[in-house]
Design a protein around this nucleic acid. Structure first.
Length: 910
DNA sequence: ACTATCACG
DNA sequence: ACGTACGTGATAGTT
């Protein structure tokens, strides 16, 4: 595997393919200056993907030269059917050449031959020079070049290059039915309309494959022409011999051109960022900039890290270490009226990390660093009390706007250090998320949005085992680093604030997301009490139970094996016990619960495995893990809510995830019992009833669906009545269950097949149900179509509050990719509207709790429910206040209904 | 680092 | 003819 790799790009084929793939797409087609750039984008995209995925040691690129080739001389019809190259494609080819030059990839082209011939020749030379070769192309002809050393990277059928496959000899055989050496002969027989190779009339794919399986090429066919059956085919071949032979010449790639190829010139070493980045900017391919291969990172020991400020940026960063400077800084921040801030700390966990320093930036290029916890301070260190005296008037002043990247973190740290911060105005991370950015790190955004390559933290603290705490780093370097963080945050703020405005995201941002930050901070720092004793007892019982099941499984299998290994489990079930295999995963047999469920009547072992899986999962994920995560500080369990993670606007929860605590089954309930209210308190759970379906009713405006909710009907029964055409009295629990699945399926963009898998219905019944559903709820169908249409027309879909999800694949040529995009487009407005509603409710509930000076605390949000910890004497107020404000959070065309439960723990509530 | 599996809404 | 439900995060096994 140490053989070096040469990647050869077929520029012409790639650009053509990208051009046609994007032709009907409205996305990414035209830049602000009106330049058509879709094919350039497609090309650059695959270029970067290949550099990242294949990490070639060498690369080269081949272009077609204009003008006739030897093939034209052989056949005046060659490529005669090709339409004139579109003018916007010609312009893009120039851009591609610019791109290739910026990347410093050696260009090969030769008059009279096509890119394929050059590539064939280059590949041969390279293999003789001792490399492996991968050809990246959109032209299937290159498949004939495949051998042990040469492979072809080619897009999957119908797709763009977002989905490629690497073709080796076996894959070529699979695709064509013949090995690579016979691909040219195959094409000579079948013909190729796009190249106007006529082939042998009457011979199609099937016959060609059959002939070539019997005879090893065109020559072999004619040598054995007497043996060919049926007679008619033999006669056709005889008659068309010259056509066949000429077609073979046309379709055979030349591999012995005289070219001047020196492997050494093709080193895929460093390219010139100063050329590539500006070009990508000019073409408005900002999303591609952060996918550029990173320059080898300055390792902490090897060379002196280049400390910001980067040379091209004008900035004034200052270490604040005298009382005079501190006073001046307070005045400066007050005068500016707004500033970005960033903290340096001893760790990432807000519960344990300590403040090391604080940086602030009141204007672009202006930064100040306040050291607090440096160990080897050369100069002045500030005491918290000194900073408080000077800065509290600034920090606590709600009229002085605070800007931060992931403000929640810095504010938690500052709060724990004893500061109160008011006036949080702008979180650049949340803003970037609303704008659809995927990579949300400050460094990543600075690079993709500001074009600034920031010093990685590892340049200061090192990486891996020898990593040190920032409190031990050089003070001056740390100051520069920290100031750069605040400065870049400020710059991003200035860039993103108007962008939010332009994209109509400002209200959502300032009225929902930003005010939610302190709410989430309070939830996180509140934590929840956990009965660790209860869980420890469970752990012991589960261990004993698991051991028993394990023994049983080994006995039935005849030998011990690792039940948690899908590979070994598959071998036992399917190879040894010969159970019928269900679906397959691409690594082997599928052994998930759906497959095992089908097999549970066929062998005793299956039930045991299912039980083992359930118990082992619950034990390792919850029972054993949660007690360990209880904070030493207050004996409570603190999750972390991520506000900028999901594509739909939901929150997510991690470390630990408290949004997926088991609830189904007796064991799940038991785990929930470990989440308790402290003495004198109760847990109150308020959950929205059917919020997603109510959101769907509102968004679609479907009369029937709205009526059902306005009548406070049981929505699943209501749907069952419509699906079966029966009165309520005749709806059985099974019917209701199917209706429920269909109700949810619609929200997910389900197909007949999907419903079949999710139920025990047949395919026909499933399809029938879906059809009937849309007949009975015509507004829903119209809405779903309109939503897909919006995604296609604008490139995004949105929720009731205007939250967006960009759907780049909605016009994908690949059907699978496109349909997946359609399902996302359908689901997001529904799921996202629910997320909007509960976020507003959280703000309203908390505002009212504060106004009434209640001691109750919001602890958790689980997508459609809020969990409060309520002092017993407040239950009367809270059980009225919470559901009322939740139900009134937004005004929909259907009522919002909230169910209440309370109890001493999360498992037993009523 | 990736895959398969499974917990939740 | 083909592949198949939306959104998350954690774990264990495998590379």
């Amino acid at each position: 595997m140490n053989t070096p790799l040469l990647v050869i790009f077929d520029a012409s084929a790639l650009v053509h393919r990208a051009f046609h793939a994007f032709k009907y797409s409205r996305q990414l087609t035209v830049s602000k200056t009106g330049e058509v750039t879709s094919a350039v984008f497609g090309f650059t995209n695959i270029l970067l993907k290949v550099l990242a995925d294949l990490k070639p040691d060498y690369y080269a690129i081949a272009f077609d030269r204009k003008g006739p080739t030897f093939r034209h001389e052989l056949s005046d019809k060659y490529k005669a059917h090709r339409p004139e190259t579109a003018p916007e494609l010609i312009a893009q080819l120039g851009r591609v050449r610019q791109m290739v030059e910026a990347f410093d990839i050696p260009i090969f082209e030769q008059q009279g031959y096509e890119a394929d011939d050059l590539i064939g020749t280059l590949a041969g030379c390279a293999v003789r020079a001792g490399t492996r070769v991968i050809i990246v192309t959109g032209d299937a002809d290159a498949m004939q070049l495949v051998n042990d050393d040469i492979k072809v990277l080619y897009p999957k059928p119908g797709g763009t290059f977002s989905d490629t496959r690497l073709f080796d000899a076996e894959a070529v055989n699979e695709k064509f039915g013949v090995p690579p050496s016979l691909v040219a002969a195959y094409k000579a027989l079948v013909g190729d309309t796009s190249d106007n190779i006529k082939g042998v009339p009457g011979i199609g794919q099937k016959t060609a494959v059959r002939l070539l399986n019997d005879y090893d090429g065109i020559d072999a066919i004619y040598e054995n022409i007497e043996l060919i059956r049926p007679e008619k085919l033999r006669e056709t071949l005889r008659r068309e011999e010259s056509a066949a032979r000429q077609s073979l010449t046309l379709s055979t790639i030349v591999t012995d051109l005289p070219v001047d190829f020196k492997l050494e010139q093709c080193h895929a070493g460093r390219f010139n960022r100063e050329k590539v980045v500006p070009l990508l900017r000019e073409l408005e391919f900002t999303s591609l900039i952060n996918r550029l291969p990173q320059p080898p990172s300055a390792s902490a020991s090897a060379e002196v890290p280049s400390v910001l400020p980067p040379p091209e940026i004008d900035c004034r960063y200052q270490l604040v270490d005298t009382p005079e400077q501190l006073a001046a800084l307070a005045a400066r921040l007050t005068e500016a009226g707004r500033f970005a801030l960033d903290t340096e700390t001893t760790g990432l966990d807000t519960m344990t990390a300590e403040l090391v320093g604080l940086s602030v930036a009141p204007a672009t290029g202006e930064g100040y660093y306040l050291p607090v916890g440096h160990l080897e301070a050369v100069g002045r260190q500030w005491l918290i009390s000194e900073l408080s005296t000077a800065l509290d008037p600034v920090l606590a002043d709600p009229n002085i706007k605070k800007i931060a990247h992931n403000a929640k973190y810095d504010l938690q740290i500052l709060r724990r250090a004893g500061f109160t911060v008011a006036g949080l105005d702008f979180d650049t991370m949340l803003a970037a998320h609303l704008l659809g950015e995927k990579s949300l790190s400050l460094k990543g955004l600075a690079f993709s949005r500001l074009g600034v390559e920031m010093t990685p933290i590892t340049a200061l603290i090192g990486e891996g085992k020898r990593q040190i705490c920032i409190s031990r780093c050089d003070l001056k370097e740390t100051a520069d680093y920290a100031c750069a963080d605040a400065d870049m945050t400020f710059r991003l703020y200035e860039l993103l604030a108007p962008e939010l405005e332009r994209e109509n995201q400002s209200r959502l941002f300032h009225e929902v997301e930003m005010p939610l930050v302190p709410v989430i901070m309070d939830m996180e720092s509140a934590g929840i009490t956990l009965d660790t004793g209860l869980l420890k007892g469970m752990s012991g019982r589960l261990a004993a139970q698991l051991e028993k099941i394990e023994t049983g499984i080994y006995e039935l299998a005849g030998h011990p094996f690792n039940i948690a290994s899908p590979k070994q489990l598959g071998a036992v079930l399917f190879d040894e016990l010969h159970l019928p295999t269900g679906r397959k995963t691409h690594t082997g047999y599928c052994t998930d619960a759906a497959v095992l469920d089908e097999l549970k009547d066929q062998h005793e072992i299956v039930r045991l495995i299912l039980e083992y899986r359930t118990l082992a999962k619950l034990k390792s994920t919850y029972v054993d893990t949660l007690p360990v995560m209880v904070a030493a500080e207050d004996g409570r369990l603190h999750t972390s809510f991520n506000q900028a993670r999901t594509a739909t606007g939901r929150l997510s929860s991690s470390e630990p995830n408290l949004q997926n605590i088991p609830v189904r089954g007796e064991l799940g309930r038991e785990i929930r019992r470990a989440f308790t209210a402290p003495p004198g308190h109760l847990l109150l759970a308020a959950d929205y009833s059917q919020i997603d379906l109510r959101a769907l009713a509102h968004l679609s405006g479907d009369r029937e669906l709205i009526n059902a909710f306005q009548n406070d009907d049981d929505i699943h029964t209501a749907t069952a009545m419509r699906l079966y055409g029966l009165p309520q009295a005749e709806i059985t629990p099974d019917m209701r269950r199917f209706a429920k699945t269909v109700n949810f399926g619609v929200i997910y963009g389900m197909s007949g097949y999907g419903l079949e898998q999710a139920t025990e219905l047949t395919r026909e019944e499933s399809t029938r149900f879906i059809t009937t559903y849309f007949e009975r709820y015509p507004g829903v169908r119209a809405y779903l179509d309109a939503t897909k249409g919006q995604a296609r027309a604008r490139g995004y879909v949105e929720t009731i509050l205007g939250r967006r999800r960009y759907i780049p694949d909605i016009n994908a040529a690949n059907r699978q990719v496109r349909e997946a995009a359609e399902r996302m487009a359908i689901n997001m407005p529904v799921q996202g509207t629910s997320a909007d509603i509960i976020k507003v409710a959280m703000l309203d509930v908390r505002r009212e709790m504060a106004r009434q000076k209640l001691q109750s605390r919001l602890l958790l949000q689980v997508h459609d429910e809020l969990i409060f910890e309520v002092p017993q004497q407040e239950m009367f107020f809270m059980s009225e206040l919470a559901p009322r404000l939740m139900a009134e959070a937004v005004k929909l065309d259907v009522p919002l209904k909230v169910d209440l439960k309370y109890g001493a723990n999360w498992g037993e509530m009523e």
